[in-house]
């Protein structure tokens, strides 16, 4: 009896493993990629095979997009409508918009899942929005043309970059005061925290560099520069940054250089340049960080990068001037 039971268990194991593998693969396949089209005034929804499932019309000039903590809502900076829109990702309908202050370009979601920190490009402010109450709960004055927003993993610090002042502003979340300004290279774009909260990476578009800042001392500890063979230096413009959670790899979008730089995030050395579409802007990983997606603003497409093998798998057309990208698991 026990023998036959063992046999049965053994016989079951293989199909079980296969089923498990299928489920895992299925989980990976269930990814939904969401892209904001700055000119197209829409959100393109793609499945994991990068087939366009839906194009949802939204407000004017959608740029920054962020996924809600529960993954059911997409927050969209409708820059020219001066509001943040909420797209329900289960039925693709619009929920009532959130206030944002003037010209919201980019924003970040606090780890509490309740507060959005919005960079208001036109009036040098960071606006704090309470999502549940749908109202503005704070405003912080920063440099001219604020853009990049990064919130520390513990939620205590906010880093905002201002394009014209060329600074990264460190804001204490307890007091809503700017506690430090770090001068970086010309036209800073993104501010991204490492998952361990020990570093902030700030990209400079015109400077073509990434400054790595120690958030405790507010000093630049390293600076990464890029030299793409056969690409003029002025075309190398650092914008989007994505760093793996284990801090082994970082990817930097190089704008009109049409390349994504692969950086060893421990030694800060650039190891490879990957050819993608034209004017590559923002980057997003899927949940297990096996794929990286890029928005290519001029060629109107997105590229998919195989992260373990560092290869560009495919590029597919989306709407006009894709800007932001997030992956919904």
């Amino acid at each position: 009896m026990s023998f036959s039971l063992n046999q049965a268990v053994f016989a079951c194991r293989l199909p079980l493993l296969a089923a498990l593998a299928a489920v895992t693969a299925g989980a990976a396949r269930a990814d939904t990629i969401l892209v904001s089209n700055e000119k197209g005034n829409s959100i393109t929804v793609l499945d994991a095979a990068l087939k366009v499932i839906k194009t949802v019309p939204v407000g004017q000039r959608p740029r920054g997009i962020v996924l809600s903590k529960d993954g059911h809502t997409l927050y969209i900076c409708a820059s020219d409508d001066n509001e943040i829109e909420q797209l329900d990702l289960d039925d693709y309908t619009m929920k009532p918009p959130l206030p944002s202050g003037a010209d919201p370009e980019n924003f970040a979601l606090h780890p509490d899942g309740r507060h959005l920190y919005v960079a208001n490009e036109d009036n040098s402010l960071v606006t704090i929005v309470d999502i549940e109450q749908r109202r503005v709960v704070g405003e912080i004055s920063v440099g001219v043309e604020p853009e990049g927003m990064g919130i520390s993993p513990d939620g205590k610090w906010v880093v905002n970059t201002s394009e014209t002042t060329n600074m990264a502003h460190f804001i204490s979340n307890a007091t809503h005061e700017v506690v430090a300004n770090v001068l970086v290279d010309t036209r800073p774009r993104r501010a991204v925290w490492t998952a361990d909260g020990k570093e902030v990476w700030v990209s400079s578009e015109i400077g073509g560099s990434v400054s790595i800042i120690d958030p405790e001392t507010h000093k630049i500890t390293h600076k990464i520069t890029f030299a793409v063979p056969s690409v003029p230096k002025e075309a190398v413009q650092a914008v989007g940054i994505a760093i793996t959670k284990d801090r082994k790899l970082a990817f930097v979008a190089l704008g009109p250089a049409n390349r994504v730089a692969v950086v060893d995030a421990r030694t800060y050395e650039v190891t490879k340049y990957l050819l993608v579409g034209q004017r590559v802007w923002n980057l997003a990983f899927n949940r297990d960080e096996s794929r990286l997606y890029t928005t290519n603003g001029v060629s109107n497409d997105i590229s998919e990068i195989d992260v373990p093998n560092l290869r560009v798998l495919q590029s597919v057309p989306v709407g006009a001037e894709p800007w932001g990208v997030v992956v919904r698991p």
């Binding site: 049409n258 050819l275 993608v276 060629s299 590229s303 998919e304 560009v312 495919q314 590029s315």
Partner: peptide
């Protein structure tokens, strides 16, 4: 690098 033509699926 300006256009994708089959059989390529991305810019080459």
């Amino acid at each position: 690098g300006v256009s994708i033509i089959p059989p390529y699926r991305t810019y080459v």
